[in-house]
Amino acid sequence: MDTEVLSSYLPLYVEAFFLTLKIGWLGIFLSFVLGVASAFIIHFKIPVLSAVFGAYVEIFRNTPLLIQLFFIYFGLPKAGISLSAELCGIIGLGLLGGSYMSEAIRSGLDAVSSAQTESALALGMKKTEVFTLVVFPEALTLSVPAIVANVIFLLKETSVFSAISLMDLMFTAKDLIGLYYDTTEALVLLVMFYMVMLLPVSFVGSVVEKKAGAGMFGE
């Protein structure tokens, strides 16, 4: 391995790293918002909307992100909707992640027993208070392991952004391999940066999971 090559590649990777992080976390933020809204709508069986969001969840859970991105980035402009590659990445990841987050949060909501709702009602809470003060926080903590798994999954999924010519980590690696054939160096840096991106999340995730997961409060 050539350290000179490594250090000359490094700045390129750092730049790509921050782009990947930016798009990744913005997409995850979007997916969380979308997931909460969708879980809420489906759980409470809000007419019409719950059918729409139900279909959305099924469609995006059962198709690969790569295809979703191709359609959004290359297909939609032909129908008059042109978005920048970055925006496509964020929206694509957000839509994919939203469908996963929705399932995670919904199963949390389902797991909160109806007796919890009743005892909150018996204390004189209004329906909205029962939801915001009791059911939702409980459901969210029950969903923590699934949410953490989704965050890791989504950060990994960012690797396909290169397909819509975003200059992310994969793109940089592929580009350098194609240009200079310093395959080993390019791959080592690729792995390193993905480790920097995901190891802390994986670590923090398992700590949070232990604290909040499976209703293990107060340990």
Binding site: A120, A122, G124, V134, P137, E138, F217
Partner: peptide
């Protein structure tokens, strides 16, 4: 319900 309190068989404390 504020005026009529209730306690359940399964306690139903809020776990969080």
């Amino acid at each position: 319900r504020e005026r009529i309190g209730m306690v359940f068989q399964s306690y139903e404390l809020f776990p969080h």
